[in-house]
């Protein structure tokens, strides 16, 4: 297969970026999307040109490093698939692809397709944990957890923190990411004691980082490689309202 690529190139955070055109030649259908970029980069290096910087690591869809818009869609055309797990068999010979970094004010570009997602870590720092020090734990079976709750918590906890939800959202909202952590911990008895303070702090941190508000476009759910449901955003809103009312009284 041969494809034409238009790729966002930007030397560093302060540089003016632009789209550049490349030809991707001798691509085979079994290659992953990132392997296709590897091939393009080898070609660029051979010509003495700077290879395209892009984030990647595990290449099996779990570390959440890879992050690119492919023809305007976060992680490309396949549902429930991170870019590293997208294979070239889903494209046709002669296709033209536009490849850009995540687009969001809260994810500034560092270079080419690499963005800074430190804002996600700071949302977690605000309360995305159970405050239990090492060594304090009771026996693991001391508190039974209903299987349905535990399964639902796991659905939320499956988030890989890639940021596709933010990139896809017309408002640049991090509601799906934040609500997934709030729901994961809020659904479990272990997360119970901090349930209210957690949602208040994490929502506040989300706003401070410059993410937009959620107006339920549900674009996030559509591109999420782990199919995290927007039901969790509804859950976050309920939790937030409940906690706000309770804490407003005191």
């Amino acid at each position: 297969m041969n494809l034409t690529l238009f790729v966002w190139r930007q030397e560093d955070a302060n540089a003016q970026g632009r789209m550049e055109k490349y030809e991707a030649q001798a691509i085979t259908p079994d290659m992953s999307f990132l392997e296709m970029l590897d091939v393009v980069n080898l070609g660029l290096i051979a010509q003495g040109r700077a290879p395209i910087a892009f984030e990647h690591d595990c290449r099996e869809g779990i570390c959440g490093s890879c992050s690119m818009m492919i023809n305007g869609v976060a992680h490309g055309p396949r549902p429930a698939t991170a870019t590293c797990q997208l294979h070239m068999r889903h494209f046709k010979d002669g296709d033209t692809l536009h490849i850009e970094p995540w687009r969001s004010k809260a994810f500034p570009v560092i270079k080419d397709l690499v963005v800074d997602r430190g804002s996600f870590d700071r949302i977690i720092q605000a309360g995305g944990y159970v405050s239990v020090n090492t060594g304090n734990a009771p026996d693991a079976n001391a508190i039974p957890v209903p299987k349905v709750d535990s399964e639902l918590a796991m659905d939320a906890a499956a988030c890989i923190g890639c940021g596709a939800c933010v990139a896809a959202c017309p408002n640049g909202s991090a509601a799906l990411f934040t609500s997934a952590k709030i729901s994961h911990l809020g659904l479990l008895p272990q997360g119970g004691p901090e349930r209210e303070i957690r949602v208040l702090r994490m929502v506040e941190a989300m706003d401070e980082e410059g993410f937009g508000n959620c107006t339920m476009h549900r674009e996030c759910e559509a591109v999420c490689p782990k199919q995290i449901s927007t039901n969790f955003i509804a859950r976050m809103n309920r939790e937030f309202l409940r906690a706000s009312l309770k804490h407003a009284k005191t």
């Binding site: 009771p138 693991a140 209903p146 994961h184 479990l188």
Partner: peptide, 22 residues
């Protein structure tokens, strides 16, 4: 054995049986 206790306390959603145990 302590590791499992610690992780459950942190909210790691290990697989469970219908009775609620691991």
């Amino acid at each position: 054995v302590n590791i499992i206790d610690q992780c459950v306390a942190q909210g790691v959603p290990f697989a469970r049986e219908y009775g609620g145990l691991l």
